[in-house]
Amino acid sequence: MTRRALITGITGQDGAYLARLLLGKGYDVVGGSRPSPARDLWRLRAVGIDRDVRIADLELLDSSNILSVIERERPHEIYNLAAQSVVHSSFRTPVLTGDADALGAARILEAIRKVDSSIRFYQASTSEMFGDTDESPQSETSAFCPRSPYGVAKLYAHWMTVNFRNADGLFACSGILFNHESPLRGREFVTRKITHGLAAIALGQCDCIELGNLDARRDWGFAADYVEGMWKMLQGKAPQDYVLATGRSHSVRNFCEAAATAVDLDLVWQGAGIDEKGIDSRTGRTIIRVSSDFYRPTERQPLVGNAAKAGRELGWRSTMSFPELVRTMAEADLKLARR
């Protein structure tokens, strides 16, 4: 029997990579996406699957719509990847973020309970839920202390997933994923802002990019590795929650330096704090500026994940190194800029 998966947020980075993975495993893939007359499928085209998935109009703010989609499609697995996922934006739109990211997951879980409790459910949780936790590295048992509306909303969805699992017996898992990037990342995220911007600067198409705290550190991995972990979680004998991470952290400064090298810019730093600048030593041009506009109102402490449980029980690990990840993204943006 062909298994069917419903992926919410299929037009995003993770949705595209997950859909490609599942199609390769013989799944029938249905993508849930907000109704729009101009739906952008560029990521699905980029991985060569835009004609291989069916798109269903799905609105996380509408319980009746979610229920009707699940009743019609009857998926065996649901991966809830849709979200307002820009952390900085969540401070400006906390209510919308909560409605989509927190209550959206609850609406799906309730629809599963009503339609078919055998459907297996994956919730995209996030390292942002840890926030200012004192423990490092963070594992599945670390304390949560979110410091953004996005983190708070995701924590609600995480605990609702646990609650439906315990109270209603659903096969519901949360993947607590640390930062994962790729050439499919949106330009609103700092990693893609860096690689896209520096590629444009290298080709003379842009003068400078503005960033926030250069010393902010993240645990960055490759998105295509992480979607395999999502799938593995739903193949287990019992539903559990897992951290997916590389176990190593790097700073925004490190990311800039690696990206500059990949596009043949000789980046050096001058100044400190808000006055720090990144200079191309060959030309003397300022190519990176620090701007207070991009500092988070509450910047969280450096986080790094402990994915030992996923390695032990799922056989999962991150395969792409940090330098390779940055180089892959920078080279892809260089090709894009040349076109």
Rank of each mutant, 00 (worst) to 15 (best):
H180D: 14
I201V: 14
G315E: 11
R51P: 06
V53C: 00
E331M: 12
H76F: 08
S281N: 13
R285H: 13
V47I: 11
E313L: 13
E59D: 15
G315N: 14
A102S: 11
R185K: 15
K237G: 13
A38Q: 11
I10H: 00
S281Y: 11
I10P: 01
T298D: 15
A153G: 07
I119E: 01
Y295P: 00
T286E: 15
D101Y: 09
T298A: 15
G186M: 05
R147A: 03
P239N: 11
A124I: 01
R317D: 10
E257M: 10
W220I: 05
S33P: 00
R72E: 13
S90L: 06
A83R: 00
D99Y: 12
R107N: 08
G305I: 05
G131A: 10
F121H: 01
T11N: 03
Y122T: 00
Q240N: 13
E257L: 07
L177I: 14
Q205T: 06
S36F: 08
A200W: 02
M129K: 03
A330D: 04
A272Q: 09
D28N: 09
E299A: 09
M129F: 04
A310K: 04
S292Y: 12
S89W: 07
M329R: 08
T11W: 01
D62R: 03
A245D: 05
A16F: 03
F91P: 03
S68R: 06
N166Q: 15
R92W: 09
L170P: 04
D40C: 08
R107W: 09
G273R: 10
P146C: 04
F222W: 10
I287D: 00
D264A: 11
R338P: 00
I49K: 00
R192Y: 01
G271L: 07
V95L: 14
T319M: 12
G236S: 15
N166L: 12
K25V: 05
Y17H: 06
Y242C: 03
V95H: 08
A106P: 07
F171K: 02
E331A: 08
L155C: 03
D28E: 13
F171E: 02
A111C: 08
I78C: 06
V69I: 14
Q235N: 11
A307C: 10
D99N: 15
D219N: 05
V53F: 00
R120I: 01
L303W: 01
G131Q: 07
G315H: 13
R72S: 11
S36D: 14
L203D: 07
W42S: 06
E313I: 09
